[in-house]
């Protein structure tokens, strides 16, 4: 089938403003939108720029707006979106070129929440693993799935309104440690998230949960963090 792909193009070395360009590509129903972009780049316009790596929804490189929704191009098939496809860069992050946005603000927010394991407790004397029950492990399983693609944060109206808000992805990554029974820095993280730019900016719009290509229950995770701040315990 012939598919029409309308792409928001922007080359800072030439263009004052982004503008749409339309391409026609021969495709199959089961092709990924990423396949179409590769084909356009390979055969029609080599300057079309986008990030990609794994090609199957794990590395988080190719988050973009596809028909108005934040998605991974490699995890969106033609049959999911039809033969008229509009592709635009993520909203809320500075545009660099075509579908490439500046991820630095996103990763800065991520780094704010101490996204690493901290434990004051000594490791077991026999040098083996710390023990954790399957139930304790399950408590934070969902938020370990995050691939830092930014689909959630850049779909969040609160983030669009104020880009200093840490955003759902950072909270998800804090949640992963706050609810890990082995971690001992819960109080510090909760304090960071209770700040002005922390969880209270969330207005439960649910956009993030809908946008997440890993199907993480983000709104639920944020609610759990809010609850932990209020009750002072996890």
């Amino acid at each position: 089938m012939l598919v029409t792909v309308k792409i928001l193009r922007y080359n800072p070395e030439k263009d004052a403003q982004p503008s749409y360009q339309t391409f026609q590509v021969e495709a199959e129903e089961t092709d990924r939108v990423l396949d179409l972009l590769e084909k356009i780049k390979g055969e029609q316009d080599g300057s079309l720029s986008f990030r990609r790596s794994c090609g199957h929804g794990i590395c988080g490189s190719d988050a973009m707006r596809i028909n108005g929704m934040n998605r991974l191009a490699c995890k969106t098939l033609v049959r999911d979106v039809g033969d008229q496809i509009t592709v635009e860069p993520l909203l809320g992050l500075p545009k660099i070129k075509d579908l490439i946005v500046d991820m630095k603000p996103f990763f800065d927010h991520y780094r704010r929440v101490m996204p690493y394991f901290i434990s004051d407790l000594p490791v077991p004397e026999d040098g083996r693993e710390r023990l954790q029950s399957p139930e304790e492990r399950l408590r934070f399983d969902d938020t370990t799935k995050c691939i830092l693609c930014a689909c959630c944060t850049t779909s969040c109206p609160s983030f669009w309104a104020n880009d200093q808000y840490y955003g759902p992805a950072a909270i998800v990554n804090a949640h992963r440690f706050i609810f890990d029974s082995r971690d001992t820095a819960t109080a510090e993280r909760l304090q960071i998230l209770a700040e002005e730019m922390g969880v209270w900016r969330c207005r439960t719009a649910f956009n993030c949960t809908e946008a997440c290509p890993r199907e993480i229950q983000i709104t639920k995770a944020i609610a759990e963090v809010k609850q932990a701040i209020l009750s002072g315990k996890v």
Partner: peptide, 21 residues
């Protein structure tokens, strides 16, 4: 030793009923 080291760095392995990797 190195798998334990990863666990000590916080790697969330799945667990056996008795809490081991």
């Amino acid at each position: 030793g190195i798998v334990y080291e990863l666990e000590h760095m916080g790697l969330p392995f799945d667990r056996t009923p008795d809490g081991r990797i």
